[in-house]
Design a protein around this nucleic acid. Structure first.
Lengths: 334, 334
DNA sequence: CCGGCTTTTGAAAACGTGTGCAGCCTATGA
DNA sequence: TCATAGGCTGCACACGTTTTCAAAAGCCGG
């Protein structure tokens, strides 16, 4: 509306708008006193430079686009929090867009980011990533993926070392003395599920335990399916004494089902999650899990993007390590 | 970078860029065949209009700014999810900024939004709202607050009816037969805490129960302080048989403390929360609580903002009702 | 064939900022 | 006194759109 422009200031200060522009940028090309006078006037007039006008000429918007499946996912929210923090510290504003894992919406979002001329894009935990990769790459803008499910592409990414982490989780159960250890996975075929499953198998193998196919069931990463999966395990003639879950949400469902069947954690069954959501420390009993450095992953991803924006071509993939957090949902078998 | 502009298309189509602009807007001012030819060329050249150039001339950015204390708060994340949904549906992109409840950062954020020339601003659960209200109002832009703690200001807002909801929660406990009902509040002095406390007192009063000051303690809306507050209640010579908590996070802490003392919920103590976070249905036992229509609140807030952007001056405040969700953390006293 | 109308097109200005270039002013040295 | 260098400032253009206004082109009736 009535926003004051560089020209308004020029008129008041009786100089050209170029001089005002330079003064406000502390350019050495303008005399000290003039510059100070101009800055004072700008201050008094409540001047705020227009980022849009500036973007038009500099061809940089100092904005980045963040696309998430849904910000209501606590894991993602933490990551975004980390992203926003370092973006903000570097003068970047972030556009947030939910895709709801809907391909149409994802494409709309990417187009929208394109039209807004964002300087870069961050995508967290995209399951359908490959789908709109073409659209992403057609705008020549740096992209960083976080925990994406379709790696091996041309883009940069920040990933958690799923294999090592889940091996650690399974090792923990083995060391407690468990021999029948189940795995409740995510939907079959997802990259991170495959990796966590691989870690589980590696741990079994190294401990000389034979892999039992019937001890592997799949949920969908949410509590409801976690319950159903756990139910199936409990119906086995010889149920497991310990269960490693794809994530905490799944563990939440498993925990509830175990309790519904009148069994106890960890006395009857040990339970391990993955993610270390906030909630994991407030379940009953508190959940042993793998901590993902969520906020840190967001930070690192944004820092990687900043490097790319500066034109430094850095490493392709940043690997981060999970950490086994031992709480009270695991104990030796009876 | 090498992004194609309206002029590039004009050159190829051998028309003026004005004509291209009109053709792309389906203006009736351009001949059908010409328009179609131009649109086809634009398509082939992979044209994406520049929102920043457009914004400069139209003086509308089709962006809104959302400031939250932290997106890592599950309550807020749900609200933002609702906001983003309707914003996106109406062609608006959302800038997300965390303030971390830090006044300096809040001011920086508002300035940033101002420079980006957002069309409107949404603020969720601002505790220090009054602090930067001046900065907000100085840019002439519609503002909608969600559950803000300093109402009575000149802006528009979406609020939950705290008094009615907490009266319902307390009534529920009274009807179960409880007579010693405690209240664990948020930090003293916050608006929503004051209101929930008021509802609690009203319910007691209407039931003819005398208010007992020692049954009111304060936390800070997070589990740790909820534990401490609950601890204080349990040290009373005659502890409460039921506790109404300011929010679910506080209830989470209370629940843990009750269990640490070897007591059981709801057999020994009934517990009621507020918010109905996702987690509330997965505690042990599942938590009776007041459901806030979080996503819906975000949607309504954005819709209100859209009305304001259209120039319709609508109602000042939208009140929303909470809903009592009875689960298993409440039962008659022994 | 011409005037007048409608349809279609183009020229140009505007939005607010950044910046290369030219030119002014002042001081300095010869 | 004059030439020159260096410090400072203004002009003008650019960025990619939208939109007003004028003008060209096509059409019709007389």
């Amino acid at each position: 509306m009535s926003s004051v422009s560089i020209k308004d200031i020029a008129r008041v200060a009786k100089v050209s708008h170029s001089t005002v522009s330079r003064a406000l940028h502390n350019s050495p090309l303008v005399r000290r006193e003039t510059a100070e006078r101009i800055r004072r006037i700008a201050e008094e007039m409540g001047y705020r430079p227009s980022a849009v006008a500036r973007s038009l000429v500099t061809r940089k918007t100092k904005t980045i686009g963040v696309v998430v499946t849904t910000i209501a996912d606590p894991f993602i929210a933490e990551v975004v929090s980390g992203i926003e923090e370092v973006a903000n510290d570097h003068g970047y504003s972030v556009f947030l867009a939910n895709s709801n894992a809907d391909p149409d919406r994802e494409i709309k979002v990417v187009h929208s980011f394109h039209e807004r001329r964002v300087d870069g894009i961050l995508v967290t935990a995209s399951r359908v990533g490959a789908l709109y990769m073409d659209h992403l790459s057609e705008m020549k803008v740096p992209i960083v993926l976080i925990n994406n499910q379709h790696p091996g592409e041309f883009v940069h990414s920040v990933m958690i070392d799923n294999v090592t982490a889940s091996r650690a989780a399974t090792d923990h159960l083995i060391q407690l003395g468990h021999r029948r250890i189940a795995y409740i996975g995510d939907q079959f075929g997802y990259q991170s599920d495959t990796e966590r499953f691989a870690g589980y198998r590696q741990a079994l193998e190294r401990a000389g335990l034979t892999f039992q196919p019937e001890l592997v069931v799949h949920g969908d990463g949410k509590p409801e399916e976690g319950m159903r999966a756990m139910e199936r395990l409990l119906m086995l003639s010889s149920p497991p004494t310990a269960v490693f879950c794809y994530n905490d949400m799944t563990a939440l469902g498993a925990l509830r089902m175990i309790r519904m069947r009148g069994l106890r954690v960890p006395e009857d069954i040990s339970l391990v999650g993955f993610d270390d959501l906030f909630i994991a420390s407030y379940t009953e009993p508190p959940l042993t899990t793998i901590r993902q450095p969520k906020r840190q992953m967001g930070r690192r991803a944004m820092e990687l993007l900043l490097q790319l924006l500066r034109g430094e071509n850095s490493q392709q993939t940043i690997w981060m390590q999970g950490e086994l957090i031992i709480r009270h949902s695991t104990a030796p078998p009876r």
